[in-house]
Amino acid sequence: MYQEMILDYYRNPRHFGELDSPDVQHREANPLCGDIIEVQMKVKNGAVNQACFQGKGCAISQAAVSMLMEHVQGKPVSEVHAFSKEQMLDLLGIPVSYARLKCALLGFKVMKMCTCKHLGRELGEGFA
């Protein structure tokens, strides 16, 4: 699970920081581990102009959200919104045990909340 790439993203997170006047932002915590992730986004012409995150937590949660931030730059918000859990796990590229799924998907859930807010949609089921 702890390949070099994951540790690299954990120790040197990409797109980590804060935006000036973001168009949309959301923050979630995982009360089980105390992981916290906040995602901020600027949208231009229906696409993600800038996205970044702040937070603290385990290597899996932090690496996953950092990779996601990289992935969504420049993509249409509707496409980001349609991004699935399975695609997120593929992007992470490591086998994630059941106990760690919440860690792997915390940033994904926060991103989803951002696109929901922007598109005026409900989060839908499967996001306990």
Partner: peptide, 27 residues
Amino acid sequence: GDMHAHDVASVLDDAGVCIRSGHHCCM
């Protein structure tokens, strides 16, 4: 080190060692 407790517990679990990780209900 700089590792989160859950990461440590996951690696220990691979070795069959069950330890607790988290805030232990003491946030």
